[in-house]
Simulated assay, not measured.
Amino acid sequence: MAEINLKGISRRWGDFVGVDDLTLHIPDREFLVLLGPSGCGKSTTMRMIAGLEEVTEGEIWLGDKMVNRLEPKDRDISMVFQSYGLYPNMTVYENIRFPLRIRKVPKDQHHERVMKAAEMVELTGFLDRRPAALSGGQRQRVALARAIVREPNAFLMDEPLSNLDAKLRVSTRAQIANLHHTLKTTTIYVTHDQVEAMTLADRVVVMNKGVAQQVAPPMEIYDRPANTFVASFIGAPAMNLIEGEIAGGTFTSPVLRVEGLPHPVSGPVTLGFRAEDVEVVSEGGNLSAPVYSVEKLGDSTMFAIRAKEDMIALKAGKAADMEIGETVHARIPPGACHVFGPDGQRVEAPGL
């Protein structure tokens, strides 16, 4: 087991900055998720930790050892990739066993360790098969077992569920969570899928353009996004963001007025609120606009309404029944609102 420290690491290719001055402390046994859109620097960060990408500036520490110049094989880290990377001519048993052979682990330990890893990912009935005879989910479990069998200091997982269909993603995600609970090994997990981040992580690093925007537990990121980028990236649907002015605790815009905000700032701001915090009312409220689209989700109903140039998402009960073009009246409670300054950064209310 090992803690991991990234001290001001950067990766540049000429004038292009892939990762910019990233500092992170990842405690032993933590499950850390690097989350962000394509090109944000999350995979580059992982590849630098693994030794697959050169560090332009900064230091990477695994435990008490600075590993910038160590080869990947000497870092005692197991990686699981989006592509399974299995050997097609080997059985499942031999694919799982392969890291032990490469690392010259005594042969009398191989069978016990392979069987233990296979049992953890429920593959004991498939050990004689070759990868071509397996489903995508089973192949990913072979890749997981091959990482487990090494008993490394840390796991690095780079979008391991991207090639799986929706049902398999859910079951494999649960398996990864259970494995982490069992093995208690430091894990860094890269994804663009916020559901994976929210359900798996102890902490999430939200990245954009090579810079960490916020580092916090999942629910803190959801409840208190640090800036408008995080607010717009986390949540399904994303947080509604309306530009306007605030004065004396009252926000006004061409489409919305919210009174009683506990924020002392004045001037131009962006007001944020989530779809589930909007109250659909029969009349009155502080927002009225025609329905643009309706989505029946079974347990709830999602409405999109268009208010001038703003598209606003509302979440109502499953019995809510409105037609496109019909006017919706809604109330946004002041306590559910988030305020962001002209620089896009969160403005905290006093006492928070």
Rank of each mutant, 00 (worst) to 15 (best):
I234S: 01
I242V: 15
R69Q: 15
A313Q: 00
T327D: 13
V17C: 12
D128R: 13
V142D: 09
T186C: 01
M90Q: 11
L261P: 06
D310Y: 08
Q82L: 03
G272Y: 01
E54R: 03
G136Y: 00
K318I: 00
E348Q: 11
L127E: 06
L24I: 11
R47Q: 11
Q345K: 15
A247Q: 04
E71K: 15
D15S: 15
V170F: 05
V204N: 04
T23G: 14
V67S: 05
G51C: 12
M219Y: 13
V17Q: 13
E220Y: 04
G298L: 04
P333E: 14
G341N: 02
V269G: 08
I324K: 05
K7Q: 14
M66G: 04
Q138D: 11
R346E: 04
P350S: 06
G351M: 05
Y222Q: 01
A247M: 02
V280P: 09
V265S: 07
S288D: 14
S282I: 04
G285H: 05
H192M: 12
K107A: 15
D277K: 13
I221C: 00
S300K: 10
K7T: 13
V204H: 08
A330P: 08
A226P: 10
H192L: 07
G285K: 03
R274N: 06
E159T: 09
P254C: 08
V114G: 12
R146L: 06
A117G: 06
N208A: 12
L161C: 05
L123V: 08
K184H: 06
L183H: 08
P334R: 00
V114L: 09
F233Y: 03
T172S: 11
H192P: 08
A50V: 07
A275T: 07
L261G: 10
G14S: 02
V280A: 09
F155E: 07
P72Q: 02
N89M: 07
V80P: 03
F98C: 01
I242R: 02
A143S: 15
D74T: 07
F16C: 04
A216D: 15
G137Y: 14
V294C: 12
N153H: 14
A304H: 13
I9Y: 09
S43L: 05
T228H: 02
D64F: 04
F229S: 02
I77A: 08
Y84Q: 07
E309T: 12
N153P: 12
G18C: 10
D158M: 05
I49S: 07
D299H: 12
W13A: 13
R75Y: 13
I176A: 03
I4N: 14
R331D: 02
T91E: 10
V258M: 11
K104G: 09
V347P: 00
T327N: 09
R11V: 15
V215E: 01
S162E: 05
A336V: 02
M322V: 10
V80A: 10
A289P: 15
P334D: 12
D74A: 14
G272V: 08
D202G: 04
L127Q: 05
